[in-house]
Simulated scan of single mutants.
Amino acid sequence: MNPASPIRKIFQGVASRQDMFRLFDRHKQRPNRFEGDDSALYAGEWFEIGGAQCDYMLDVLPPLWIRGEMFAMREFLTGFVTSVFFTLKIDGHIRHFHSYCDLSDRSSPDRMRSAIIERESRPVKAMSHEERLEHIWSSTHDDYRGYAGERWPEGDRGKRMVLLYGGKEGTILKLLDQLMDAEISAKLPVHLRFLPDAIAA
């Protein structure tokens, strides 16, 4: 069994159908994509979708299993990681979510369910620093993001990077995890820029 990956929200708001399909493989540009087991890269990721998207995915293929308010896709993305979809009642509202769970750990769907409910039951809208970075990565077009290659210091190679507007310097590439607060704010849509900080779920 692979070590548990942290459960993390990767997109703020309800993903459209187009967003959903992009988010299914937001790591497709990674180096050595088809080498080794990338389970840890995907396991633990989740985001909200609409009810129509959830119904569509239920009808695509017969699910691997259905358990009450959740079902798992029959096709595995990598290793034992597959999509698990949830229909949850949170604060009186029915909402729908997509997640990646590593089914080599039978308890992972239940832990994911609990984490989503805990995160989405918070009374005040907020985003942790990690959620801001994940949203930037998720919402940036493939042409404006990538992975550090051979021109970067050895310790940085393979890390995620995004294109920034650098004023007089023009556009520059910068590692995602090294973005300053002002750069993070500039990369977020206006309605997310001023949300208070939150402890990661």
Rank of each mutant, 00 (worst) to 15 (best):
E118C: 11
Y147V: 10
R119N: 02
R67E: 15
S108I: 03
M57W: 13
M57K: 00
F34V: 00
L179H: 06
L133N: 00
I90K: 06
P153L: 05
E118H: 15
R22V: 07
A198E: 06
D110Y: 07
S99C: 06
R193W: 10
H98M: 11
M127K: 01
D91T: 08
I7F: 03
M180K: 15
L41M: 14
A52M: 12
A52W: 03
L133I: 09
E75G: 08
A201Q: 00
D55A: 14
S121K: 09
S104K: 03
C101K: 11
F97H: 00
D143P: 01
T82I: 03
R119Y: 02
P62W: 03
L179N: 08
S16I: 09
E75W: 12
D25S: 12
Y165K: 03
W65I: 09
G149C: 00
E75K: 15
D91Y: 02
V84I: 09
S107E: 15
I117S: 06
I136R: 00
M73I: 01
M161K: 00
P189G: 13
H129T: 04
R145A: 05
P31S: 06
T82K: 06
E134W: 15
R67Y: 11
F85P: 01
G36R: 07
A15K: 02
F76A: 13
E150V: 03
M127D: 04
P123S: 12
P196C: 12
D181Y: 05
M73G: 06
R33P: 05
E130S: 13
A43T: 06
R30G: 07
T140P: 04
L179W: 07
E130R: 14
T171N: 15
L192V: 04
I117M: 15
L163H: 05
D37V: 13
S128N: 07
E35H: 10
P31C: 06
W46D: 02
M112L: 13
R74D: 07
D55S: 14
A115N: 00
P3G: 05
D55Y: 06
P196K: 05
R26A: 08
K187Y: 02
K174S: 10
A40K: 02
A43L: 01
R33H: 10
L64Q: 15
H135D: 13
V81A: 10
K89S: 12
M70R: 07
F24M: 11
S104P: 04
A182K: 15
D142E: 14
A4Q: 01
I117P: 02
S16N: 10
G50E: 13
Q178L: 14
F24T: 08
A15T: 09
W46G: 02
R193F: 10
V60A: 08
S16H: 12
I10E: 09
M20V: 05
R113P: 00
G146I: 02
K168A: 13
D143N: 04
D19R: 04
H141E: 14
N2P: 15
Q53D: 14
P153K: 05
I7K: 03
